[in-house]
């Protein structure tokens, strides 16, 4: 998996680089409502199953200045729909802490949906 290339498809991701085997570090700028965060963190690929086209990851990141961050697990599945179509199924269990957490779940959910939509658009243009 070309993680730096995929990672940059996430809106707000500024850089992604390898930090050991199956481990990557990067920064992401994200704005949720009034809060603008500059999150630095890492992502570790905890499982890759090519037969099932499935990858699992653990992500952790924080904005030291504002005091907010995220941590959690993600499971990504690629599902063949046809010769020209692949569905990307992302299941995530993410905790939002500090200033991000204070905004409350309804806002975070809507923001996560819009980030994923933009990610899907970006990735379909890339590949």
């Amino acid at each position: 998996m070309d993680m730096p290339r995929v990672g940059r498809c996430f809106p707000g991701v500024k850089e992604v680089e390898a930090d050991g085997e199956q481990s990557y570090k990067g920064t992401m700028q994200v704005r949720v409502g009034p809060v603008s965060l500059n999150i630095t963190g890492n992502m570790v690929v905890t499982g890759l199953d090519k037969d099932l086209w499935q990858a699992s990851m653990r992500v952790e990141g924080a904005d030291r200045r504002l005091g907010g961050g995220v941590s959690g697990e993600m499971l990504v599945n690629l599902v063949d729909l046809s010769d020209s179509e692949t569905e990307v199924v992302v299941k995530s269990d993410i905790s939002f802490m500090g200033k991000l957490g204070e905004l409350g779940q309804p806002i975070i959910r809507k923001k996560a949906d819009s980030i994923l939509r933009e990610f899907a658009d970006n990735i379909s243009r890339q590949f």
Partner: peptide, 9 residues
């Protein structure tokens, strides 16, 4: 208000 809540600094 946002500054007091440290949402914006």
């Amino acid at each position: 208000l946002f500054m007091k809540q440290r949402m914006v600094q």
